[in-house]
Simulated assay, not measured.
Amino acid sequence: MGGEQPFEGRLRLSTMLRAWGHTEGQTNVDAQRLRELRMDVAVAYAPRPWLVLAVNLPLQAREVRDVSLARERGWGLGDIDVSAKAFVWKDREFSPDHLVSVVGGVKLPTGPRLRARDGTALGLDAQPGSGSVDPMAGIAWQGFRGSWSFLATTLGFLPTRGREDFRLGASVRTSVAAQYQPSPRWAVRLGVDTRAEKAADTNGEPEAAGGGFIAYASPDVLFSPGMDVVLQAGVRVPFVNQLRRVSSTPIAQVSLAYDL
């Protein structure tokens, strides 16, 4: 949806491609490796200058491999999420230096349940959808000073129970970033993204892996090849990992946004 306040009637089309992975458990003992390539396609519309509505649809390809080298692969449409952002305060009406907004949304269980060739359902980690309804809410601040802009967000996620009575743990995710834009065509951004989460559980029993805290250093480069088009490329590199029995890879991502 962007951090800036939109003009009324703006329609934004965007897509983001991400590659990431993690490994749960102990190497050569009970390790399970997950790798995912994910493309999100999103539409955001501003019916009012203070309100943005968005719909996001992911297409995911997942591979899960355990220590025995057994492997599962699944790909398909994931769970749609819908969200809204309302700007609730600004320091002045024209060209504000500070914006405060509240965000709310929900992920819906629209992803199909994938099955192997013999008809058995793939494992939960190979599925693109969770089968749960997951609400989220938070607050964001955006600041501007000359060629610099700043962003800080805090979002809370409260997943519900999904397939096979599995539930992801509640989490709080934060992001702070500073962006320097020396010209209309390009900018650089550096941020820190964090996630603190409760361990997932099945039938009320906590999972052996997961839960804890992780922080990523998040550099990005942004380029505008033409009016109303922005291309962004970056990486999220974990530099603090206090997740229990989980090691995470860097997250590579590239995105494209176009305003109509």
Rank of each mutant, 00 (worst) to 15 (best):
A233Y: 08
L99S: 06
A116R: 15
D30W: 07
D91E: 09
V188S: 01
Q5K: 11
A199S: 12
S130F: 00
R73E: 14
E4A: 13
L11F: 10
A31N: 06
P238V: 08
S95I: 02
G123V: 12
A31K: 06
A208S: 11
N203C: 04
A46H: 10
D193W: 06
A54L: 00
P225V: 08
R185W: 08
I251S: 10
N56W: 05
P49L: 05
N241V: 02
G78L: 12
G234I: 01
S130Q: 09
R65I: 03
A140L: 07
G212K: 11
G74H: 06
L114G: 08
L77Q: 05
G212C: 11
T15V: 07
A121S: 11
L69N: 15
R244M: 04
K90P: 06
L11S: 02
L34M: 07
R173N: 14
Q142K: 01
I251A: 11
G191E: 04
G78V: 09
R113H: 10
A42G: 08
L122I: 14
N28W: 03
S132K: 10
R38P: 00
T174A: 12
F223L: 14
E72D: 10
L151F: 15
F94M: 12
V229N: 04
W148E: 01
V103H: 03
G162A: 04
R236L: 15
R62G: 02
P58E: 01
P112Q: 01
H98T: 10
F87S: 08
R167D: 04
V41I: 12
V237H: 09
H22F: 14
A137Q: 06
G156I: 09
I80N: 03
W20N: 10
R185K: 12
E197R: 03
D81G: 00
R245I: 01
G146S: 05
A257Q: 13
Q60G: 06
M136N: 12
T174R: 15
V133R: 09
V246M: 13
N241R: 01
G226C: 10
Y258R: 14
A187S: 15
R33Y: 01
G74K: 00
G191R: 12
V176N: 08
S147W: 05
S224L: 00
V106K: 12
P128S: 08
V88W: 03
A19F: 13
R115A: 14
A199R: 08
S68R: 14
Q232T: 15
G143D: 03
E36S: 05
G129T: 01
D79C: 03
F94V: 15
R115L: 01
E197W: 07
D66E: 07
D220F: 14
F213C: 04
P159N: 12
G204K: 04
